[in-house]
Amino acid sequence: MASITLEKLVKRYDKVEAVHGIDLEIADGEFVVLVGPSGCGKSTTLRMIAGLEEISGGELRIGDEIVNERAPKQRNIAMVFQNYAIYPHMTVRENIGFGLYTSSLSKDEKNARIEETGRILGLTDYLDRRPAALSGGQRQRVAIGRAMVRNPSAFLFDEPLSNLDAQLRAQMRIEIKKLHQDLKTTTVYVTHDQIEAMTMADRIVVMKDGYILQTGTPVDLYENPADVFTARFIGTPSMNMIPMAALAGKAGLPDHDPDILVGVRPHDLIVNAPKEGAILTISGQVEACEPLGPETMVHMRVDGEPVIATLPGNVAPPVGSIVECSVETGKLYLFDAKTEKGLGRK
């Protein structure tokens, strides 16, 4: 096990800079999720840590050692890929054993390790099957097994759940999280799915266009987003962003600066809520409703701006009707409209 330190890490492809000197410290045993839209540099960063991409500038340390020029195998890390990268011509046992290819263990010790790994991942009954005879979730478990069997100093996951269906994804999320709680191996996990980031991470790193926008615990990012991008990226449905101008004159709002964006999470904007203690009450025309069971998401338009609000329960207001919704004090996020930086909460 080891810590991973990125210092001014840069990746350049010819003239294009994909990662612009990012700094990040990952503590020993920490589960860090790099999250961001495609092309934000998260996979490139992970591949630089793995040694699959050359580092164009800056320093990468695993433990106390600078590993910029080390080959992947010398870094003692293990990686799990989106398409599993398990070999179709080998059995599950051989695939998992592949992680021990260069190990100096005896055959019996290797076998014991493989059996143990298979047991932890619930693959004991499948050890002699070929990957073709496994489901997507089982294949991904084999890939994780191959990574685990070696006791690496860090796990790297590159969007490992993107090829699975929604139900399996939810299940594997928990499995990977449990696995990390048991093994306590330093983990760097790349995903574009903010739910994966929120549910699994000790710490989330939000990336965009090759920069780190914000680093923090899931709750921290949810409660105190540093900018408009993070605010909208974390949490689903995305935070409503309403220009202050559209809210001018609305009761309860403290100031009316036109250069301010007001953010409200759909879950904080409650339809037909009592107005006492509300900092903002707005009304809008209903455009569509999405009943989810315990609550209904109401899509509406306020002064031409699309806004999503929540209606507790199952009774959807008719489309075209005007509804009123309000936000409690402390649930408004203010952002500078020009720099998109956060200005705190009201």
Binding site: A78, N83, A85
Partner: peptide
């Protein structure tokens, strides 16, 4: 042959010949 097959093998420490 997907390139991740080779990358996974490189991370597992296999040489070119292997």
């Amino acid at each position: 042959i997907p390139s991740t097959f080779y990358e996974a093998a490189r991370i597992d420490g296999l040489g070119e010949w292997a």
